[in-house]
């Protein structure tokens, strides 16, 4: 019976649950879903991670290639993040060029990486104006169940933490480079960002870590990204207006969560080694 009710009146079904301060999946309003992180399982990549937040699953793989720095930034390497909403993850997405949603997500992830300054691009330069590393970070969603920004950000940061690059020696007089595959060193990650998404339901209730159903029914979302003790992204793309208390409340929750997530990343990496 509940199934039919849910498909006929999804909004009412949710409202009935939320009246009793509980969500249909058994969580309280401000509860987060369990998070699973696995790193280094894809050996063809120079760094990889798989992140699950509830059902939402994102795989991140970083492949390094050698290129030439841009003329206007001769001492900088590249970090190229791209999010792909592959048709595997939901019936919403069809094969072909990236949808608008995927493009927006790509930009958001690129903004978060840029804002947090977690990677010093100058460290990716091998020899100024000659050669530099280009890290292609591909994030592929394989199960779309809401809070995708959180999952992508988490996958990317845990992946960056395990990336290792081979040693390169460059001889400027001969313009020759030699790569030593045996000797690999990890890259420096200066800060860890943690993203948390909230959904605003019926203009007043705030649901933490929404599922895809909740995202579809809600009247607005809010994503806050913390970076160490600071904020590096507060993203609210329209939707229901928020009062300041709600905003501060969300920021506080986000700060608390970021500590536990950071610990989780650490344990995931330790287990891998």
């Amino acid at each position: 019976m509940a199934e039919q009710y849910k498909s006929l009146h999804p909004a009412k079904y949710y409202r009935d649950h939320l009246k009793h301060d509980i969500r249909p999946d058994g969580r309280e309003l401000s509860d987060f879903r369990p998070v699973v992180i696995n790193v280094g399982s894809i050996k063809t990549a120079d760094g990889s991670s798989i992140v699950k937040i509830g059902n939402t699953t994102v795989v991140c793989g970083i492949k390094a290639e050698i290129s030439r720095p841009k003329a206007d930034a001769a001492t900088k390497g590249f970090l190229v993040p791209n999010v792909e909403l592959s048709p595997v993850c939901s019936s919403k997405f069809k094969p072909g060029p990236p949808s608008d949603q995927a493009q927006v997500l790509t930009q958001i992830i690129a903004d978060i990486v840029g804002n947090s300054q977690c990677i010093n691009l100058e460290e990716l330069c091998i020899f100024p104006d000659k050669i530099a590393w280009c890290l292609y970070a591909d994030l592929i969603c394989i199960d779309y169940d809401g809070s995708l920004i959180d999952a992508c950000a988490l996958a990317l940061i845990s992946c960056l933490k395990v990336v290792s690059l081979p040693e390169v020696s460059y001889d400027p007089s001969l313009d020759k480079q030699q790569v030593n595959l045996e000797k690999r060193t990890p890259i420096n990650v200066n800060s860890v960002f943690v993203s948390t998404t909230f959904a605003i339901f019926d203009d007043k209730l705030i649901l933490a870590d929404p599922t895809v159903e909740e995202e579809n029914l809600c009247t607005g979302t809010l994503t806050i990204v913390t970076c160490n003790d600071e904020l590096c992204y507060v993203h609210k793309p329209g939707g229901s207006p928020l009062v300041d208390e709600q905003m501060s409340d969300c920021i506080e929750k986000c700060m608390n969560r970021s500590n536990s997530i950071k610990k989780l990343i650490k344990t995931a990496i330790l287990e891998n080694i």
């Binding site: 804002n115 809010l222 904020l231 590096c232 992204y233 507060v234 993203h235 609210k236 207006p241 905003m247």
Partner: peptide, 8 residues
């Protein structure tokens, strides 16, 4: 009230 927020 805040409708939208964007930061860099």
């Amino acid at each position: 009230d805040v409708i939208a927020s964007h930061t860099e």
